[in-house]
Amino acid sequence: MNAEQLLFVVFSIGTIVSAASVIFVRNPVASAMSLVASFFFLAGIYVLLWAHTIAVLQILVYAGAIMVLFLFVIMLLSLTDTGPIAQLSPSRIAGAIATVALLAALVSVFRKLPSSDTIAWASDAGRVATFGTLKQLGAVMYTQWLFPFEAVSLLLLVAIVGAVVVAKSRI
């Protein structure tokens, strides 16, 4: 077992366990903290996939900015969640069964994929050295994907204005 296999097992167990505790923990603050833990483990998985830049973004933007926003709202609303996490109802049971069926279908499909433990293009050392670096990501982003990049800035502006308009009682 090499380092990547060992780290993959550790990070994937951490991701799944903390993602499950997001759902099955009653307190919303505990849910949010489990989600932060899940994002950190996922960032580890991203590094294993040679996506260092996205892993850093995941921690900065997701675990940092977005989850702080969530925690602010949870504490602002000061929710006291009593009672069971989920009452059994026909629609919930149907949802759970559908989820398990979807997971079984996806896993059975993915197990049929040709699984090779080498990467075909990795014999090219120069390509491996630049893959997923900020430099290469920026070069693609600011040439091929310039318009979507600018469109995202407009989307963020609209989201800021929209959030203020929706959340503020009197403008």
């Binding site: 090499n2 990547e4 296999q5 993959f8 294993l48 993915f110 197990r111 994929l113 699984s115 090779s116 433990d117 080498t118 990467i119 990795a122 014999s123 050392a125 491996v128």
Partner: peptide, 10 residues
């Protein structure tokens, strides 16, 4: 350079 990696399917 050849790496042994975890398969993409995993």
């Amino acid at each position: 350079m050849n790496f042994t990696v975890v398969p993409t399917a995993n």
